[in-house]
Amino acid sequence: MPVDAAQLWTLNHRLLTVVLDACSAELAELGLEAKEFFVLAEVAASPYPAELAARLVIPKASVTVYVRNLVAKGFMRREIDDTDLRRHRLVLTDDGVAARDRAFAALARAFDRRLAAIAPQDRAELQRILLALLEPAPEATS
């Protein structure tokens, strides 16, 4: 039976949404909104606001506000970049690392509750499929 790509995308998106939603109270207890968590989780790999916006595909203006909030909460700080003194890089504080790790743990618990419904070999297969999907996509032909 052919599987519609749009339906698969929708199912995948719905899964991510319900898992994230299941964690929203725990994130709120940590003082985080979902998008602030995404910023917190990404900042080690993308320490500049413009990079964060591009990686997360959210408006730069939004990243500016999230970063301001996270700095005010003591989860990250701005440091002058050693390689370019004209700009700042974002660095997680110890509290930021702890909040990020606790948020990841909450997400993992929520996802694990979903994964419990499928067999161990299916989990392994799911991992294989997700890794394959994360490979660079072939060029569009049209």
């Binding site: 916006a53 997360l56 595909v57 408006p59 730069k60 990243v63």
Partner: peptide
């Protein structure tokens, strides 16, 4: 007009 025309705004 409010937020510019970056990738995030195009997503919006």
């Amino acid at each position: 007009s409010r937020y510019g025309d970056d990738a995030g705004v195009r997503r919006m």
